[in-house]
Design a protein around this nucleic acid. Sequence first.
DNA 1: TCGTGTTCTGGGAGCGTTCACAGAATAGGT
DNA 2: ACCTATTCTGTGAACGCTCCCAGAACACGA
Lengths: 340, 340
Amino acid sequence: MNAPPDRPRRATIFDVAAAANVSRGTVSRVLNGEPYVSEAAREAIEAAIAKVGYVRNMAARNLATQRTRAIGLVIHEPHQVFLEDPNIGAILLGTNERLSEEDYQLVCLIIGSDRDSNRVAEYLRGGFVDGVIVVSARENDPISNAVAQIGLPTVFVGHPSSLTDINFVGIDNRTAAREITQRLLGTGRQQVGMIAAALDRDSGAERLQGFQDALGDRFDPDLVVDFPLYSRSSGVLGMHELLSRAPGIDGVFAGNDAIAAGALDVLKESGRSVPLNVGVVGFDDSDWAMRCTPRLSTVRQPADLLGREAASSLLDLINGVPRAAHGTILATQIMWRGSA
Amino acid sequence: MNAPPDRPRRATIFDVAAAANVSRGTVSRVLNGEPYVSEAAREAIEAAIAKVGYVRNMAARNLATQRTRAIGLVIHEPHQVFLEDPNIGAILLGTNERLSEEDYQLVCLIIGSDRDSNRVAEYLRGGFVDGVIVVSARENDPISNAVAQIGLPTVFVGHPSSLTDINFVGIDNRTAAREITQRLLGTGRQQVGMIAAALDRDSGAERLQGFQDALGDRFDPDLVVDFPLYSRSSGVLGMHELLSRAPGIDGVFAGNDAIAAGALDVLKESGRSVPLNVGVVGFDDSDWAMRCTPRLSTVRQPADLLGREAASSLLDLINGVPRAAHGTILATQIMWRGSA
DNA sequence: TCGTGTTCTGGGAGCGTTCACAGAATAGGT
DNA sequence: ACCTATTCTGTGAACGCTCCCAGAACACGA
C-alpha cells in the first residue's frame, strides 16, 4: 500500500459553523434547504461556506442517510459488442436524462471480465448506489444473478428469461420479428432465411422465435444460421453460408442492421439485386439502415425511451411508489424502406 | 421527500464480531487481509461472515479511509457525438481494463446538460472517487475547468489547449494530420481541401493545423469547410460545398472516417472516381474505414492504449509515484489503403 | 402579565468503518 | 524460572455528516 497523498485537510461542516458563528445543526439545515432557519443565519452560513471553500463530504452523508442519490448502470460487455450496438448509447442517454431530472447521478459500470464482475457486485453491494439498471444482460450471466440477489432496487433493460420475478423494460422482440418477417413474406418471397445472433441474449433468442412464428409450417431450420455477435462480419459469413445452402434464397431477416449490411454486400457481390432478387430486412433502425443501398427495411426500437422508462421505474421502486406491473413493454415500429 | 425504503438492517462488522466471538478490530484485519490474525480467528470470522451475510459498507469505509478505490471518467457528450465516435468506446475499455488490474472501479459519468455538469462536479468533489479522467473535453468546457479546480488527481485524454499545467495523454493530431496530408499530396494531387469538424475540441483544431502545415503556401482557406460534428452527414454537406466551390478538387482530407465516408458517397454520386479523380483520406481507422469502397486511407490512433495510459498515469498520480513528464503522446500510424 | 404557539438553534447520538495504541498470549532463548 | 521478542486481540477515538430532541427566542392574543 502506498501512502495516501497529503492534500490539505478539507473544510468540514464544523469549520463553516465556526466561521458563521452558528452550530453545525443549522449549517446542515441550510445545506439541505430545510425550513426554520433565520435569514441572518442563512446569509452568514452561505458567506462562510464560500469563505472556507466548503464542499459536502458525500461519504459521510451517505453513511448518515443511508442513501446516495446515485444509480448504477451495469453494462455487460463481452468483447466489443457494446461499441457496435447503437442501442446501448441511446439507452444510456435516455437513462441519464431522466435521472438528471430528479437529480440522481448515473454511474456506468463496465464489465469486461470475471474480475470486473466481482468488483462491480462488491461496489453495488457496498452502498455506492441506491439502485441498479442492468442492460444487455445475457442468459445466466453471473452479474445478473448477483445483482438480483443483492436486494437493491433493480430494473433490467431487456428481460433475461432465466430470471423470473424481476422488474424490466423492453420491447417485444418476438412480435416485432414476426411482424417484419410477415411483411417480408407479404412481398411474395418463397424461400426466406435468417441470420441470427446473440442467441444467449433475450433479444437474439426472441427474434429467432418471432421469425419462426411468422413462417409456421414453412419454417426450415436449414435456413437459419447464427453467430455470437451482432456484427457486420456475422452478416457476411452468414450470408455466404445461406447462399451455399440455398442458392435460390429470396428473403433474409437479419438479427440486426449491422448483420443486414454485411448480408447486403455479399448479395451484391454475388450479382444478386436487392430487393429484386432478394429482400432483406434488419432490426434496430441504427445508422447502418440509412447508410445501406438500398435503404434498409427494419424495426425501430425506442432505445432512448427504454432508458427513460427504466430510470422512471427504478425511481418508483426506490421511493416505494406502487406500480401496476413490474414489466414494461414499449412499442416498436416497422420502418419499411427499399431493401425488401 | 419520500420515506427511505425499509429494507432489513444489514449486518455490520459488529454482528460478525459477535458471531465469531472476537472483536471488530480482528474482523477488520481479516477483511483487509492484514497479518497478525490467528488461523482459528480467521476461520471463525470467515464462517461468521458467510453466516450473517455480511458485506462491507463502503460509505463507512470511505469515510474512515478517505479513499474509495473508484475512478470517475467524465464523458462530455453534447448531442450524440459519443455514440458516433468510435474512439470513446475503446478508450473506455482500455481504461477499465487497466484499472481493473489494480482493483479500482471505473465509474463513467455522462454530461449531457449544464445540470449534469454541476451534478457531476458535485459528485466528484463529494469524495465518491479518488481521481478523474476527462475525455473528449472541449475548449473552455465548464466541466474541464471545474475538474481542474477540484484538486482531485486528474488526467485528460486529449489536451484542451485552454488548460495549462494539466496531466494528459493524447496523440499528436497535428503531426498525424500533416503527415497523411503530405502523403496525399505525394500522390500528385493539385487541389486539396479539408472537411474539418469539432474545431472547439483539441482534436478538431489540431487536425486543421496539421493540414495547413502540410500545404504551406498552397493552403487555400476556401478549400476548408467545417462542421460542429464528426458525422457522416458533415461529410456529405461538406463535400457538396467543396465541389461547388472547386469542381476541380482532386484531394480531400476528412476530419475523421465518418466524414470521409460521407464525402466518398457524394463523390461517387457526382460521377467522380476515387481514387482516380479524387483522393480521400480520413482519421481514426474506425470500422467505417474498412467498410468504404474503396477502403479508406486513414490514421490509426491507439484508443485502447490511450485509455490504459490515462489510467496508469492517474494511478501514479494518486499513489504519489513521480513521473518525468505530465503529458504523454502516443504514436499514430498511417493506414494506407485504396482511397488515395 | 401570562400563557400558547411558532420559529429557530444547539448539541448528543448514531451511521459502520479504520487506525493507533495498549495490553494479553505465546514462543524462544538463557 | 525469568526476560524478551513476536504474534495476536480488544478498545477508544476518529472520519463528517444527519436526525432528533430539548430548549431558547420571539410573536401575538387574552
